[in-house]
Design a protein around this nucleic acid. Structure first.
Lengths: 131, 131
DNA sequence: GAAAAACCTATCAAAATGATGGGTAAATTT
DNA sequence: AAATTTACCCATCATTTTGATAGGTTTTTC
């Protein structure tokens, strides 16, 4: 299941894409509009900044804004960045160590096919498709 | 991610489908073939029996066997039964209470479309497709 | 009655999930 | 220079989920 982290990240991105893309939007405003705790969003938006999806600016007049044009984001990159992985099983995650059963694993092709389906679905959705 | 519970359940079903479907197979044998703790499999196979996918027989000569013919099982029902739900987000699970944001939720159509994709994928796979 | 099997109940450690709280640094405005 | 507003950083926490383990009871057959 997609956790609140990924879902809230997507809502942050949608919110920012719906605002003036040139100016910095304070997280406080996003939190109020989305009705989510600002403190919790801080943790999530950090990933989005570190992942290079957003630009942040401290101080008065600061906030966050999109780094790219709204239509240049896919839902996939947002979910994958914040959820850690889109892999359907642990052994197919990036960080996973080689599974010794891999060559004999009768279910692996199923998980691979499923993983590709999920990847293609989410990377095929643009952020602007949700507006 | 699909947890070990769902993955092991699928391996149990595959294992049983690969054996003589008429006789009862002791869990001990399955556990040894699959190289998984029998104790852990007990918990998982319980769901499969209660869910009506397997028939069990106690006592010497007992064990488990498929209730239906192997080709009459879908991967979807096995995963859904043991994982609890195939829903991609909490608000779309069977047991979920109505989300008050539903009518205003801009991401809900995405999750619904994704949920259908996942459902169709797994329910479109027969157990015998994996043999 | 011995053996082999399912079945039942409890417990547990570790990790993930979903947050909260308090303080520091940076930038702008007054 | 001070006040204000913002991001940023660090720690902590309760609850749930995950992935098991342990030991005992019942059922059935030989």
């Amino acid at each position: 299941m997609i956790s609140t982290k990924g879902r809230y990240a997507l809502r942050i991105m949608i919110d920012l894409a719906s605002q003036d893309n040139e100016s910095f939007i304070p997280l406080k405003d996003i939190a109020e509009r989305q009705n989510i705790s600002k403190k919790y969003l801080e943790i999530i938006i950090k990933d989005l900044v570190e992942g290079g999806l957003l630009i942040s600016l401290s101080g008065k007049g600061g906030g966050y804004k999109l780094k790219r044009k709204p239509e240049e984001y896919t839902v996939g990159e947002i979910i994958e960045l914040t959820e850690g992985s889109l892999a359907p099983v642990a052994c197919l995650a990036e960080k996973a160590e080689e599974c010794p059963r891999a060559s004999a694993c009768i279910t692996l092709p199923l998980w691979k096919e499923y993983g590709e389906l999920v990847h293609n679905f989410f990377y095929g959705k643009k952020l602007t498709d949700l507006l």
